[in-house]
Design a protein around this nucleic acid. Structure first.
Length: 218
DNA sequence: ATCCCGAGGG
DNA sequence: CCCTCTGGAT
């Protein structure tokens, strides 16, 4: 409910330091249009961008448009996306997503979050990715990295990504949300990693309530 | 054993 | 709120 103590003061400093470290952070999912980004983002659930980027070239070659994907053979689709995990559920989502685009959105990816989340396999996180990256609209995707870093930096206490997003929306201006998310993700992959954060190499260690200074040696 | 740009269903 | 779906990397 309430923001953590000091969150309002920390937030602008965090954004400033991130901007210095990652001036041009980009979306790591390879894509050429909103349809490809939507597809790649659905596949990225509990998977890595590297794995997803490995399967999408063949996938987009086989199904260049939502219409092609809507008519895909389910077994062939599952084979193409198998290595990203959850292949059965993801194939079902992709088929349903493509069919929904065809018969409810004239084959185009919608830009409104309320429309995006009605698509099979699209939740708030995926919807916000498509909004901010493909369309340049306000959106703050909270994935595992963003959630973890926001908690460590104590910009939120919420474990639930939807609640964390609400907290972060209070701390970040609309036009900065997409970039903020991308920069946090970059920092989460390179420095503030899940298992053993490299606080010694972190530019925000001085203001991070979770920073631990690892002793040199004993 | 834990984590990765989660979503859907109960 | 909880559980399940799934494979690859570390």
């Amino acid at each position: 409910m309430a923001l953590p103590r000091g969150a309002k003061q920390r937030a602008p400093i965090v954004m400033e330091r991130l901007a210095e470290s990652y001036p041009d952070a980009e979306c790591a999912l390879v894509h050429r249009n909103p349809y490809e980004l939507l597809t790649a983002t659905i596949l990225s659930a509990q998977s890595t961008d590297v794995l997803v980027n490995k399967v999408t070239p063949a996938l987009f070659d086989r199904y260049p448009t939502p219409g092609d994907l809507a008519g895909a053979n389910p077994d062939e689709l599952e084979m193409l996306i198998h290595s990203t995990g959850f292949f059965h559920a993801k194939a079902k989502s992709l088929l349903g997503m493509a069919m929904a685009l065809e018969d409810r959105f004239e084959g185009e990816v919608p830009t409104a979050l309320e429309d995006l989340v009605t698509l099979p396999g699209v939740g708030r996180k995926t919807g916000n990715v498509v909004r901010s990256v493909a369309f340049g609209l306000p959106g703050l995707p909270v994935d595992t990295h963003v959630g973890r870093l926001a908690r460590r930096l104590r910009l939120t206490r919420e474990e639930d990504p939807v609640k964390a997003e609400m907290d972060l929306n209070r701390l970040v201006d609309r036009e900065d949300r997409g970039t903020f998310s991308l920069r946090l993700i970059q920092h989460g992959r390179l420095v503030c990693v899940a298992r053993k954060p490299r606080c010694d190499a972190c530019t925000m260690a001085d203001i991070c309530p979770s920073a631990t200074v690892t002793p040199v040696a004993a």
